[in-house]
């Protein structure tokens, strides 16, 4: 490259650098696609541009176009792992679960500590009814995610809940791990109670409800839930007392709030529970 070429290459690089922040327009997907097409014309060997365009297609639910771009990126650079992740995700969204499983497993061999990769793979496996495998990859997700959200613990519990016989201890262990990360989280406690009820471990279910913050624990919804569990335990008096507490709580609400469907239903459930217990 002679001096002149270096000069022009430098100018071009400076121009590209200057333009790049604004090169993707701020509007509809169509505009962004046009800009990205233009960019790709100038930089046809940049896999990042194909992934960007693929994600625009992905957001527009144009799965085939998205997949073409992710594959293009991988053709340029087989080690461009991000492209493989999005390829797997798009295949899942498109409904090609076998393809998604294959691609995401390959991705996980390359990026084993990716929380997103492990989680998306688990979602594919759930849809393929491969529940133990799904739970395994959710364990990996939890292990590699510094802050796994409640949803991940929920998904793990639900994957395992599909296995017969119900692996209660494994499920509970995972949910309790979730409660260490998210103390007193209603979503995880709700699932824990559900699993204990499925396993007919009603004492444990009641103990789990006690973990809730008091504003929830003493709400009509959860008073009713406790009453139902007490009823199943055969503790008629406690159940009656809890149902009455539910009604008293609802009656203490302002009139319009009392009429909210949730409270109307809760009151009906409590009245029905009392009727059954009084038979």
């Amino acid at each position: 490259m002679n001096a002149k070429s270096v000069f022009f290459a430098t100018i071009a690089a400076v121009l590209i650098a200057a333009v790049s922040p604004t090169v993707f327009s701020h509007g509809a997907a169509q505009d962004r696609l046009h800009r990205l097409e233009h960019e790709i014309e100038h930089h046809p060997d940049d896999p990042a541009l194909y992934v960007k365009r693929g994600r625009v297609y992905r957001d527009a639910e144009q799965w085939d176009n998205a997949l073409n771009d992710f594959v293009s990126a991988l053709k340029i650079d087989r080690q461009y792992h991000e492209a493989r992740y999005w390829q797997g995700e798009a295949l899942m969204q498109k409904g090609d679960l076998r393809g998604a499983e294959q691609v995401l497993k390959k991705y996980i061999t390359q990026v084993p500590d990716s929380p997103s990769g492990n989680r998306t793979l688990s979602q594919v496996l759930m849809q393929l009814h491969k529940y133990p495998q799904a739970a395994y990859y959710l364990d990996q997700t939890i292990q590699h995610d510094s802050r796994p959200p409640p949803q991940v613990f929920l998904e793990r519990a639900r994957a395992l809940a599909n296995i017969t016989p119900l692996p209660t201890r494994r499920i509970v262990a995972g949910l309790k791990k979730g409660l260490v990360k998210h103390p007193r989280n209603v979503v995880i406690i709700n699932e824990l109670v559900r699993i204990y009820e499925l396993a007919e471990q009603r004492d444990s279910a009641l103990a789990a409800i006690d973990l809730l913050p008091s504003r929830l624990r003493d709400s009509p919804k959860w008073l009713n839930r406790r009453a139902q569990i007490e009823m199943h335990r055969g503790h008629r008096k406690r159940a009656l007392d809890l149902y009455r507490q539910t009604i008293a709580k609802i009656d203490a609400l302002p009139e319009q709030r009392r009429r909210l469907p949730a409270f109307v239903h809760a009151r009906q459930a409590a009245e029905s529970g009392i009727s059954k217990l009084n038979l």
């Binding site: 929380p115 997103s116 989680r119 997700t141 995610d145 510094s146 802050r147 796994p148 959200p149 409640p150 949803q151 991940v152 990360k181 998210h182 007193r184 989280n185 209603v186 979503v187 995880i188 913050p213 504003r215 929830l216």
Partner: peptide, 27 residues
């Protein structure tokens, strides 16, 4: 969102434990 990572989550400090009222979402 699943890892609460990236610029959006780095920039904003939002309540995950009911710090400003409401029930804790955990995220």
């Amino acid at each position: 969102s699943s890892t609460e990572s990236g610029p959006y989550y780095d920039i904003f400090t939002l309540p995950r434990n009911g710090e400003a009222g409401g029930v804790a979402s955990g995220t």
